[in-house]
Design a protein around this nucleic acid. Sequence first.
DNA 1: AGCACGCCGACT
DNA 2: GTCGGCGTGCTC
Length: 829
Amino acid sequence: MEKYAKVIVRSNTFHTDNLFTYKIPEFLKNQIYVGHRVLVPFGKGNKPTEAFVFKISDTLEEDIKLKEVVDVLDEEPIFKLEDLELVNWMKNRYLCTYIDCINLIYPKGYKVNNYKVVSLSDEVLNLNENEFTDLLSSLDDIQKDIISKINISKGKLKTEKLKKIPNINYILDKMSKKNIINLKWEYKNHKNEKNLCYISLSIEADEVDDYLKKNKINLGVKQKEIVNFLKNNDRVEINDLIDILKASKQSILSLQNKNLIDIKLEDYYRNPENAYTLEQKEIYLNEEQKNACNKVISEMFDQNKKPYMLHGVTGSGKTEVYMEIIDYALSQGLDSIVLVPEIALTPQTITRFKNRFGDIVGVFHSQLSEGQKHDVYKAIKAGNIRILIGARSALFAPFNSLGVIIIDEFHETSYKSEKNPKFSAIEVAKFISNKNDISLVLGSATPSIDEYYKAKNGEYNLIEINQRANKNPLPKIEVVDMKEELNKGNKSIFSFKLQDEIKQAIKNNNQVILFLNRRGYASFVSCRSCGYVFQCENCDISLTYHKGKNIGRCHYCGYEREIPKECPECSSIYVKPFGVGTQKIEEELKVIFPELKVLRMDKDTTSKKGSLEEILNKFKNKEADILIGTQMLSKGLDFDNVTLVGILSADMMLNFPDFKSFETTFQLITQVSGRAGRSDKEGKVVLQTYDTDHYSIRRAINYDFEGFYEDEIKIRKAFGYAPFNNMISVVVSGENENLVKKNIQNMYDSIIYLLKGRGITDFEFILGPNPCSISKINQNYRWQILFKDDNIEINLLKGIIKYICITKRDVVFSKEINISIDINPNSVL
DNA sequence: AGCACGCCGACT
DNA sequence: GTCGGCGTGCTC
């Protein structure tokens, strides 16, 4: 009986994003199963290509000519059936390609390396000398050159080495047709694995001198050093040795030749380091925490259980609850995944987990190298990692017996991917947990409105923790109306109230956190005389002023330019920065409190690796009195001595042109305030705002989440936003603005045409086409159409968008145009 | 995206 | 007639 494999081919284009059928040759029939990686000839050139087996069948529906699978690439299938189900679901949900999804689940470390090889044909090789000379004389110089190059490299040459010759493919093809040369693909199954090379003495330390004498071996200076070092240190990694002794690899190798040392290669799991240490405290759960745990634990082996939403105020000890749940899962032989918003921002969290669970804790995030990811992947498969902490991509870790998924601070926007597939970690986690009866816990002090709505409607088990773990009250938030402050004649960024409170806190030997949601010195630079605003050359964004270097920087593409003293438009000298950034806060603070030590934490000061940890450590060790920072501050940081939090401009986010800006404002105020008074000392918050009346600020200062939810959900309902509707954003971009406009109009017309064909005549659920709020990024003009599934079945809508933007992409859109489809995007800028 | 095919003008 | 350039369309 014949066997056929339906595979997804690894190619970097959406054109080939469907199942291809290959015949399985006799010799592989019992070796290839669903989930296997195979090598198949693909395209006109039969390029050997990595492919993933999605189906195996013994019948052929259509009469198509088939190629054969060349080889199987792994002994065991790389994907489980659930993995393939997940891929199918994600592809459909997020309108992305199979390969986009596969890349998430399966690290790219194993990618096949292939290259085309040219060699002389048998006929040419069998020619005698005269015949060969005749042949050469019939060829032109380039062809002769190719033949000599093949001969120099022992009869086999990668075509890549010939690519400088113009029209090389054509020439090679011609020669191949004349039967002068053979073209063939060769491949290497390259595994990105790191081995550590351990060196030890091959004989006992005190016998070395005897051995040298007996065999009359003289050692060089470096070699002696190495041997002495090895006498004292049993096993040393080769790179450490080279580092410490400034030795060369050669001297080590010559010691090996003298049989003095053993070199052992060991597979190494590249455990990401982190320098942050935290003393371990004995933890006792309070009543509320215990109840939360017990709820999850008691249902761990139930089928069809709902996910849990853990809504606990800031400082309520959610992490302890997570750890208790994980501890139980471990005792039952189950593994756990903990997702945290931005891995780099939570060294504290990792340390807490490592202190409690030790080496079975692994870390995974997108900043790891492919090799490191691969190591983690392997350690999970081998069972060396039982608990994985990571960013959203950690969700796809290949655990054998996963029992628990925890998503901490699940309201964070970083759980929605910005890259293809633009998946929501929460949705994917729900899918995985539902399919495999895994306990899913979503925790937050400020749940997102749309998920909380679902919890209220019974989609989640809602668990509330209303008290801080230390039983302290939440810090009192005092509001300062900055309009009044101006009337009092205070033009500074700091209200009198805040200045007083800072003095007070410092006097009591406490620390202060100041929060402002904008980095840099000033938000923009403009000319007071003519109104000219310095803008990015590549984006439709005004440049943020950075004072140290006197430059304007674009926070979207990184473009920088020096800010001249004179206005480039009208040559006036009234060029001034406007608005306030963290840099400026730092500067003004030093004027008012010259004696205080200040640290700044934003994307500019933490871009270097390890600098974040350094800042946090310094602040923790009380090397500074005040920490100024952006959003980064709001996430899970725990400083015992912070009693005062200043929110400098609480209403700044309110005017953001996005329907989630009220929610974001509420969340940020709540989260930042939560940084105060986390240990025994009582905390206080001073909140400065021009808008004192907005409900998101009023509700936030009273820690009234329920109230905010009630206010906000009404608005969401009235305008048809999430959770009441899905929103689909299609952004069309390109360097030629007219072409972009023409293309998106074309797309709009096509979609309207199809909708009309379905009897739909009311198109109010379609917004656009409009230019995006940020109409240009990196020289690309951006236009957008927004769809809400108001009056229309979402699958129909998605089907139509998919048909126009993917299936018929070549017909509807020009080649130079980029299309980005996002289901329920974080923002519609 | 590649890659080959095929159409067409240029050139021996 | 053949060479070489580029546009078009398919990939099991």
